[in-house]
Write a protein that binds this DNA or RNA. Structure first.
Length: 193
DNA sequence: CGTCTTTGACCCGCGC
DNA sequence: GCGCGGGTCAAAGACG
């Protein structure tokens, strides 16, 4: 529409230091973050055949993600969604609880909310630790659909908005957004070197 | 009026 | 068990 449209962020966050994520056991980690600066995905990936905002949860995507994770034993490198630098521990119990599908990405944008074609109702706002900017909570307004999303700016770089989706929509999109489709189509998943 | 936002209260898991 | 951090509820208000 105009110059305020969100743009895919292709900056240099990947060069920043990584944190260490330690799970109490094996393979399916709670947080799987691609080191690429424009996209990160967490919570165990997607199931075959599911669609998420035009992202096919294909094995191809999963493979890319898996190959993008440096894993040795229980240790997985990631870059925190909330800019934490500390060590985070997650046990098996918590992992099973957090089984919801999660999907997050960063955009460089002046506006917090980007039109993704769905209707959202804001139901909360919280100030989070170590971040001057509040986190906003939204829920899909479609009846029976319980998809949520969180929107938050990075503390270090307030031009960057982190949007985290949780869940899979039980319905089709009502008002397709060309802007958002463009963003998705520009996204790439880079394997870790 | 219907719809969405604001905002303090409430709740809950976790670490000390 | 208590406090903290983070997620949600819901009453009241804003706005078309």
């Amino acid at each position: 529409m105009d110059g305020t449209n969100p743009k895919l962020y292709l900056g240099s966050l990947a060069s920043e230091k990584w944190s260490t994520f330690t799970s109490s056991h094996g393979s399916t980690s709670n947080i799987n973050i691609s080191p690429s600066n424009d996209l990160f995905v967490n919570s165990g990936g997607f199931s075959e055949g599911e669609m998420f905002h035009g992202f096919a949860a294909s094995s191809e995507v999963s493979d890319h993600l898996n190959s993008g994770i440096t894993s040795s034993g229980n240790r997985i490198n990631f870059m925190g969604t909330d800019d934490r630098n500390d060590e985070v521990k997650v046990d098996a119990k918590q992992k099973n609880k957090n089984k919801k599908q999660r999907f997050a990405f960063q955009t460089k944008s002046q506006v917090d909310i980007l039109d993704d074609g769905y209707r959202w109702r804001k139901y909360g706002q919280k100030t989070v630790k170590n971040n001057a900017h509040p986190r906003n909570y939204y829920k899909c307004t479609y009846q029976g659909c319980s998809v949520k999303k969180q929107v938050q700016r990075l503390d270090k770089d307030e031009t960057i908005v982190v949007t985290t989706y949780e869940g899979i929509h039980t319905h089709s999109i009502q008002k397709p957004s060309d802007d958002f489709q463009n963003i998705l189509s520009e996204m790439k998943i880079f394997p870790t070197s």
